[in-house]
């Protein structure tokens, strides 16, 4: 009976996941259709398979230097992820474990700051980045991204959910705070850090407005900006847009799968879980 229940659960979860996946599959299929067939609801799977959308995009370096953009994207998103995960885990450790005086109140301010619509920051940020001479350099996309409160808030809450007993034991054993942070807390919180890493990477990767507004040269754009090239204010070149978005999302899927393995392995190595 229990076994049957388990099997039912797995089947049920897969069915739900399939529903979530269906639109994505449709998007992928559509990117292989010729433009004239694109929005035809009667053929979810292409009647005519074509690579023309992909060839068009890749074949026009002047319009869309995809190789360069891919490099930019990886550089910016990896940098942002490393910085955000590093800075946020340090800050969360300071607040929840070292109990920095006023740390919780500070966290409150950070969370409150997230409640102000960020659209308003665009102009001050632009002027500031201009003063720093960071416009049209990757710094404009990397450094301001480290100021987001999301990561600190998330890791703080996750650390609170992990019992302090193990760290206390380490301190009694004579470890310094730095050693505890690196050797005990970080491994314990690896799953949440990996999760934060994935979210940060995706967020940075998909940022649209940042590259468009802060970059002046097309060669300094990031990959997702390419998607916007095929959408005009009046109509969308559906085939090209969907093909670009498939190409822009594939690296993300690879990153996610890699991180997912990382999560599993780190849990196995701590020996505490599954």
């Amino acid at each position: 009976m229990r076994r049957a229940g388990r099997i039912f659960l797995v089947a049920f979860m897969f069915a739900i996941a399939a529903i979530f996946l269906a639109p994505v599959a449709l998007m992928a299929f559509t990117s292989f259709k010729p433009e004239s067939e694109v929005l035809n609801p009667a053929s979810a799977i292409p009647k005519v398979w074509t690579l023309s959308n992909y060839l068009h995009i890749l074949g026009w370096v002047e319009e869309a230097p995809f190789g360069r953009w891919l490099l930019n994207s990886f550089f910016v998103s990896t940098s942002v992820t490393v910085l955000v995960v590093g800075i946020s885990s340090m800050a969360a450790y300071g607040i929840t474990r070292l109990k920095a005086p006023g740390g919780n109140a500070f966290l409150g301010v950070v969370v409150a700051s997230m409640m102000i619509p960020a659209q308003l920051f665009l102009v001050p940020l632009y002027l500031m980045l201009s003063k720093f001479h960071w416009l049209d350099t990757p710094l404009a996309l990397i450094v301001p991204a480290t100021a987001g409160g999301w990561g600190v808030f998330m890791l703080s809450q996750f650390m609170r959910a992990v019992p302090e007993a193990i760290e206390e034991a380490a301190i009694i054993d004579g470890c310094s705070t730095g050693e505890v942070f690196f050797n005990v807390t970080l491994p314990l919180c690896a799953p949440s850090m990996a999760t934060l890493g994935v979210f940060t990477f995706i967020g940075s990767w998909n940022d649209f407005l940042g590259p468009l507004v802060f970059m002046d040269s097309v060669r300094n754009y990031t990959l997702p900006v390419g998607i916007a090239l095929y959408q005009t204010s009046y109509y969308t070149e559906y085939g090209l847009t969907l093909a670009t978005s498939v190409m822009a999302t594939l690296p993300l899927i690879l990153v996610f799968l890699a991180f997912q393995r990382q999560i599993v392995e780190s849990m196995a190595s701590t020996g505490l879980k599954d």
Binding site: G94, K99, I116, F121, P124, A147
Partner: peptide, 28 residues
């Protein structure tokens, strides 16, 4: 010592947060 170190660990975030969030908030 732990209290002081706490803010030391917070320092990088505090710097970024002040520059790129608090200042724009002040402007708005």
């Amino acid at each position: 010592e732990r209290k002081l170190t706490g803010w030391l660990y917070l320092a990088p975030f505090v710097v970024a947060f002040t520059t790129f969030v608090i200042v724009p908030i002040g402007v708005s």
